[in-house]
Simulated scan of single mutants.
Amino acid sequence: MFPRNTWYVACTPDEIDEKPLGRQICGEHIVFYRADDGQVAALEDFCPHRGARLSLGSVCEGKLVCGYHGLTMGCDGKTISMPGQRVGGFPKIRSFPVVERYGFIWVWTGDAALADPAAIHHLEWADNPEWAYGGGLYHVDCDYRLMVDNLMDLTHETYVHSTSIGQKEIDETPVSTKTEGEQVVTRRTMENVMAPPFWRANLRGNHLPDDQPVDRWQVCRFTPPGHIMIEVGVALAGKGGIDAPADQKVYSIVVDFLTPETETSMWYFWGMARNFNVKDKALTAQIRDGQAKVFAEDTAVLEAQQRNLSLHPTRKLLLLNIDAGGVQSRKLLDKMLAAEQAAAPVAQAA
């Protein structure tokens, strides 16, 4: 149901600063920790001695120590030592390719020989002093593809987010959908409208009036398996929309990394990158808090949707033109899965 030969966001650096972190990704139980050189390591979360969770242990001088009998693991999956015991002959447990980049920890759950760090999704705003970022993490009990559908069709904002980013003009404005190479892109532009509450606050945050008509844009870019960057913002009406001068608009990128946990649960790394008033930490916190409330509303809807779909697995769902973004995105996912499945017998034969 989910591609494996690809990079997923596994966690953020602060989650593993002092202790190991256990996290299930694509059905794999993995423990993340920092080795003695400060680099991140990722191992199967399974002690080769008695099968305990290594993530319940500790990190001592950069070594992962099982919390059951003190067995010490190397970052390559080889057992190093155990008090009073000879363990050098223990077989290796699985290690996973892992990379720390752009403020995230990325893991590869498929064939390690195919893991190329150069394939990690490029984030042009990360590590750039002209941009600020704030975000968070939600665990969501739904198939990650339901979140893809949600983010690639923002029509729901009018109803799910009526008190923050929703407005009737979203319903009234058509959306275009295109597949551009290995991306699906949806676009919607609303001209000469009043900004909803979330965007009025951002206008004030950039020292712009919040009581004047604006031009608003939403450009959603899906890159499989689960990376969605959404260019969003408002500009004072008639100033050029998304291309307006910086002092006439508020422009941001909504950051969405969807990491499958199981077939019906996922890790949702969300945030917003902006290129205005980047040193204003209070504004960053304000935007993050506002965004957290918006995404919490999505979470409630999606988890209820998943429960309903699980109760009625054979029911056929209806498709409308507004669903084109999700439909095209799923086609790219199916293409990735088909390619992996086609290559699997060859790899096994080798």
Rank of each mutant, 00 (worst) to 15 (best):
K178W: 08
L319C: 08
L137V: 15
V107Q: 00
M152E: 03
D215C: 02
P197Y: 11
T79I: 04
P224N: 06
I120C: 02
Q286A: 15
Q24P: 01
W217V: 12
G89Y: 07
A195I: 08
S164L: 14
A10Q: 05
P209Y: 04
M73C: 08
Q85P: 06
R53W: 09
F222R: 01
V175E: 10
V219I: 15
P225Q: 03
I30T: 10
G166V: 08
K92L: 02
T284E: 06
R188W: 05
L333I: 15
G226P: 04
I170W: 05
D243V: 02
H122E: 12
E44H: 12
D289C: 11
Q248I: 04
W125Q: 12
D298N: 06
A349H: 08
P224C: 11
L123C: 06
L302D: 00
V301H: 00
P209N: 05
P91H: 02
E15W: 09
F90S: 11
D215Q: 02
R188C: 11
G233V: 13
M190Q: 09
E28A: 11
T79N: 01
Y144Q: 05
L203M: 15
L56E: 13
P48Q: 06
M336W: 11
C66E: 04
A338V: 08
G62T: 09
K316T: 13
S95R: 12
R34L: 10
L309K: 11
K335A: 13
F2L: 04
K178I: 13
N321T: 09
V219M: 05
R53D: 11
Q291A: 15
M1D: 13
Y138Q: 13
S164I: 14
Y159W: 15
D116L: 01
T179R: 15
A119T: 15
M147T: 12
D289T: 10
Y68F: 15
P129Q: 13
T79K: 00
E261L: 04
W125S: 11
P260K: 03
A296K: 14
E157T: 14
A10F: 09
F96G: 07
F32W: 05
G110P: 01
S310Y: 00
V87W: 02
G88D: 14
I322N: 06
V9R: 00
P260H: 04
A41N: 02
V65A: 02
P13F: 10
L114D: 11
Q167K: 09
T262F: 09
Y68L: 12
Q167A: 14
A112W: 01
G62Q: 03
D76A: 11
K178F: 08
G57F: 02
R200H: 09
K78E: 12
T264Y: 05
C142P: 00
A304Y: 02
G136V: 09
V327S: 02
P117D: 11
H312L: 14
A343L: 07
F257T: 05
G84A: 12
T189F: 11
R23W: 08
V278R: 02
C220N: 15
A273M: 07
V140W: 13
C220D: 09
R53P: 07
D210F: 03
